[in-house]
Amino acid sequence: DIEITTNGEEDAKRVIKELQKRNLEYHIEVHGNQWVIKVR
């Protein structure tokens, strides 16, 4: 598993777009303004 910590929603959406392009499965956890994306 890979864990990507982003700085808020805009940053997270940019990362998610890339993950979707590669058809990767991911899970999002929001901790305040930090979005942690866990990639399987």
Rank of each mutant, 00 (worst) to 15 (best):
T5V: 15
E25A: 13
V15P: 01
I4K: 01
L19I: 05
G32S: 03
E29K: 05
E9V: 09
D1L: 14
E29T: 11
V39M: 04
V39Y: 09
G8S: 15
E3H: 11
H27R: 13
L24Q: 04
Y26P: 02
N33E: 09
R22D: 04
D11S: 10
H31Q: 10
G8K: 08
Q20N: 10
N33F: 09
E9D: 04
R40A: 09
I4G: 01
T5D: 03
D1E: 13
L19C: 05
Q20P: 01
H31C: 11
N33P: 06
W35D: 00
W35I: 09
E10A: 11
N33R: 05
I16F: 03
A12H: 03
I2K: 05
T6W: 03
V36L: 07
E3R: 11
D1F: 15
E18Q: 10
N7R: 10
K17Y: 12
E29Q: 08
N33V: 06
W35S: 02
V30Y: 09
D1A: 11
V15D: 00
D11L: 09
I28E: 01
K17Q: 12
N7E: 12
K13D: 06
G32P: 03
W35Q: 02
R40E: 06
K21W: 08
I28G: 00
A12G: 04
Q20A: 09
E9A: 10
K13E: 08
K17M: 13
T5W: 15
Q34K: 13
V39E: 00
H31P: 01
T5H: 13
I28K: 01
D1R: 10
N23G: 15
V36R: 06
R14A: 11
G32H: 04
G8V: 07
E25K: 14
K17F: 12
V30W: 06
K38C: 11
W35K: 02
E10N: 07
E10I: 08
G8R: 11
V30E: 03
D1W: 15
E3K: 09
V36A: 02
Y26M: 03
L19T: 01
K21R: 14
K21G: 07
V39H: 02
G8E: 06
E9K: 08
H31T: 09
E18W: 15
W35V: 05
H27Y: 14
W35P: 00
Q34H: 11
I37C: 04
L24N: 02
K17P: 01
L24W: 08
V15I: 15
R14Q: 08
K38P: 00
H31S: 09
E9R: 09
Y26K: 00
G8L: 06
T5S: 07
R40T: 12
I16E: 04
E3W: 15
I4R: 02
G8I: 07
N23Q: 09
V39S: 02
K21P: 01
N23K: 12
G32E: 07
D11Y: 10
V30I: 14
Y26D: 00
L24M: 10
E29M: 07
E9Y: 14
H27M: 13
R22F: 11
A12P: 01
V36E: 01
Q20K: 12
H27W: 14
V30F: 09
L19H: 01
E10Y: 09
L19Q: 00
K13R: 14
E18Y: 15
E9L: 11
L19E: 00
E3P: 03
V15L: 10
Y26Q: 00
N23I: 03
I4S: 01
N33S: 10
I2T: 07
K17W: 11
G8A: 07
K38M: 09
K38A: 04
I28Y: 04
V39C: 05
T6Q: 02
V39I: 13
Q20F: 05
H31W: 09
D11T: 08
E9H: 07
T5C: 14
E29H: 06
Y26A: 03
V36K: 05
T5Y: 15
R22Q: 12
L19K: 01
I2M: 12
Y26E: 00
L19Y: 02
N7P: 04
H27E: 14
R40Q: 09
V30L: 07
D1Y: 15
I4A: 01
K38E: 02
K21T: 07
R40D: 05
V36M: 04
E3D: 06
V36P: 00
H27Q: 12
T5G: 03
N7H: 12
E18I: 14
I16S: 02
W35E: 00
R40V: 14
E25Q: 13
I16Q: 03
L24V: 10
G32T: 03
R14S: 06
E18G: 05
N23L: 06
E29I: 11
E29R: 06
E29G: 02
K38D: 01
Q34I: 15
I16H: 01
E25Y: 12
L19A: 02
R22N: 08
R14K: 12
H31G: 03
V15E: 02
T6E: 02
N23F: 07
V30G: 02
N23D: 06
R14E: 08
E3Q: 11
V30T: 06
W35R: 02
E9M: 09
E18F: 14
H31R: 15
R14M: 10
R40C: 15
N23R: 12
E10S: 07
A12F: 12
E10R: 09
Y26R: 00
T6D: 01
H31V: 13
R14I: 10
R22T: 05
V39T: 03
V30N: 05
Q20M: 11
T6N: 02
A12Q: 02
D11H: 12
R22E: 04
K17L: 14
Q34R: 13
K17T: 09
N23C: 06
E29P: 00
